[in-house]
Design a protein around this nucleic acid. Structure first.
Lengths: 191, 191
DNA sequence: CTTGTTTTTGACCTGTTGTTCAAGAAAGGA
DNA sequence: TCCTTTCTTGAACAACAGGTCAAAAACAAG
């Protein structure tokens, strides 16, 4: 009953995510969101409640995508170092391929709202923990396989590599791919 | 001749820097700047031209401060690893000490405006190069002193450590000091 | 003093922000 | 067919953004 929606909420969230990702939270106006998603401002508010709630959903979606990407790259065959290297290079490549360097939405959000907004800070933390867990599991596997020294602390190194990823996404705003690749090589020498 | 200023431009830039640092560019309004600096909006525009130009000066000041901090920490006695470790821990400590985690103004600016605004991107790049040069010089010294292996590529490792610093400042938004210290320890193992 | 010059201030301006709302459109059920 | 319900849209809203400006204030020189 009632008039049916003429859009898919998921598609709207995806387009909103792109917009927030590219321009940040403060610099993305409802008018811009309406244009990017193709639906009216009224529908946006009717469906998602507020700009902030839409952002929450966009960030959650981004977090899921990020975790899936990490899982995908780290589960493929190869040594731990090869796989983590491929994963980090992939993030660099996809970053550099974009006409404007938008970096990582998680990192950008951490810079803009992390520490100020408790709810967003928690959400970021949850995304971080999920990816760190994937990295730690892969390093642990490497220790069992013998391609990673047993001296390596899987959790600490996973946190370090996540931090390296964050740093890389910031550096991607001012550096070219070659410099970023060099940084990855140094980071991988900890394995 | 003429009415004298009843404020020091440098003090105003410093206060504005704090404001931009804490809240970001978009989230710092002229009204807020006027309140934080203690002078009227008119004087602000009369002296600095625009919010953007004031920001440029604030960022330049931040860059100078950052380079000086790096020089100071790396010039003190100790091994390369000790000194760079102390420098990285210092940034973590000063971050964690603040009631709200504001991170690094350079990193925050890179996330917000880097890649979008060519002039700001260049300014960030200049700050980065200066600090990387300080790090590279210290690593080179370490190689001569013998506390760093000659296998270590000073420039690449300096870029890596700068990137680590950027990552740490992002991680400081969601992690406690202990986790950040652990990340520093792993990063230092590349030396 | 006056005059000329450079500040200072807050009121004011225009455009935009995030949000709401009234009016109408598109369905199913009575 | 006419409700009822749920959706759509864009106009309208108060608040605030970034910026300007006229008037008054504070000095030095004549």
């Amino acid at each position: 009953m009632g008039r049916p929606r003429n859009f898919e909420a998921d598609t709207v969230i995806e387009r909103a995510m792109e917009e927030f990702w590219t321009h940040g939270y403060a610099n993305t106006s409802p008018a811009r969101l309406a244009e990017a998603t193709g639906i009216g401002k009224g529908s946006l508010y009717n469906t998602f409640g507020s700009k902030r709630q839409l952002f929450d959903q966009a960030l959650a979606r981004y977090g899921r995508m990020g975790a899936e990407l990490a899982e995908e790259f780290l589960s493929r065959p190869g040594t731990t170092r090869e796989r983590i290297g491929a994963y980090l290079r992939e993030t660099v490549d996809s970053d550099v391929a974009q006409p404007i360097r938008r970096g990582c939405m998680g990192v950008n959000t951490a810079a803009e709202l992390g520490g100020h907004d408790p709810e967003i800070t928690r959400a970021l933390r949850a995304i971080e923990e999920r990816i760190v867990a994937v990295l730690a599991a892969r390093i642990d596997q490497g220790r069992r396989d013998g391609d990673v020294s047993s001296d390596v602390d899987a959790q600490a190194t996973a946190e370090f590599l996540f931090s390296t990823g964050a740093g890389l996404r910031i550096m991607a705003k001012t550096n070219d791919a070659r410099a970023l690749y060099r940084i990855i090589d140094v980071a991988l020498s900890t394995l």
